[in-house]
């Protein structure tokens, strides 16, 4: 029997152009809305662009990078924001990954009401960042909020989001995990449901206990989901900034690099309503963020590739 697709994809003459022509609109759209702005950001990072129509853009060379990384005390704050971004990413990635896995294992078992629990844990994912922030601002009211009330039962107190920068920062980590653990859980669940039940049965016949089933059947065969979640969590947490804006605003000691980019680009740094827009400088900061994400993502990708070879080859 002749394979029809071979005819279409590798035919001679103009027919061979069909797949390319069909791909062109999508590829063009990708260039336009993804690659184009990214390249433009790289170019803007060497200019004094303000983002305001009618203002001349001047070429500055590496001046924005020099200011961002080396000039005055502001560079100290920028480097601190970079480290804070790494800390944020580490905690979010590890906790969200672990919690998502535990929830998926529990909700993949024959737990009563598991569909309701799946819905509950996934629900925050569908809420917008503004709603997520508002909900947690209410939860975390220091005077009479539900969390403050629970804390008071065990003699704790906290100023939560309005207090010490480290406390506020930690609470943003909590909210970020709450907001995104649902998607991590669903990816793990999807992966678990592709594992054939016969493998578990065979392992049980061989006398495997629950932990051994997880260690030797679930975990290796979950590799694609593990890798996907690992990369998504790292990249997502490195780029996060919206919750910082909604929950604590621009406050010394709490900014991450993503928020710094927004604040510099749209004049939000000084508290003054007439601050300058420094979109060229913000572009340089975003390129710094991009480099950070790139390096970490490449390292993570190498790690997950190694895992795939180990477990799936």
């Amino acid at each position: 029997m002749k394979i029809v697709t071979r005819d279409y994809l590798f035919a001679r003459g103009w027919r061979s152009a069909a797949p390319i022509l069909l791909l062109l609109p999508g590829f063009g759209l990708y260039l336009l809305i993804a690659v184009g702005p990214s390249l433009a950001t790289a170019v803007y990072s060497f200019t004094d662009a303000t983002g305001i129509r009618g203002i001349a853009i001047n070429w500055l060379g590496f001046e924005n990078y020099d200011e961002f990384l080396f000039r005055g005390a502001a560079s100290r704050d920028n480097i601190a924001a970079l480290w804070r971004t790494l800390v944020f990413s580490f905690f979010v990635t590890t906790i969200q990954f672990g919690l998502g896995l535990v929830l998926a294992v529990l909700l993949n078992s024959r737990l009563r009401g598991r569909t309701i629990f799946r819905t509950i844990f996934f629900m925050p994912v569908i809420l917008g960042v503004a709603i997520q922030g508002l909900i947690w601002k209410l939860f975390l009211l220091p005077g009479g909020g539900p969390v403050a009330e629970i804390f008071s039962w065990i003699g704790w107190s906290s100023e939560f989001l309005g207090g010490q920068p480290r406390q506020a920062f930690a609470w943003v980590i909590v909210v970020q995990i709450w907001a995104n653990v649902g998607i991590t859980m669903v990816i793990f669940l999807a992966g678990m449901q592709t594992i054939p039940e016969s493998l578990y049965e065979a392992a049980r016949i061989d006398g495997a206990n629950g932990w051994q089933l997880f260690r030797n059947v679930t975990w290796p065969l979950l590799t694609p989901a593990v890798n996907t979640n690992f990369l998504l969590n790292i990249v997502g947490s490195l780029q996060a900034w919206q919750l910082f804006l909604v929950l604590i605003g621009y406050r010394p000691g709490t900014q991450v690099l993503g928020y710094l980019v927004f604040a510099e680009g749209f004049g939000q740094t000084s508290g003054s309503v007439s601050s300058a827009f420094r979109q060229g400088y913000a572009a340089a900061a975003s390129i710094a963020l991009f480099m950070l994400v790139l390096v970490i993502a490449l390292a993570a990708n190498a790690f997950v590739s190694h895992r795939e070879k180990k477990y799936l080859s």
Binding site: E67, R71, G72, A73, A74, D77, P252, G253, S270
Partner: peptide, 18 residues
């Protein structure tokens, strides 16, 4: 607040009015 402009490179604690 209406007169203050921070010098480029100033740190996050430079505006003592806050």
């Amino acid at each position: 607040e209406q007169y203050w402009v921070a010098p480029a490179g100033a740190g996050q604690w430079a505006n003592g009015s806050q």
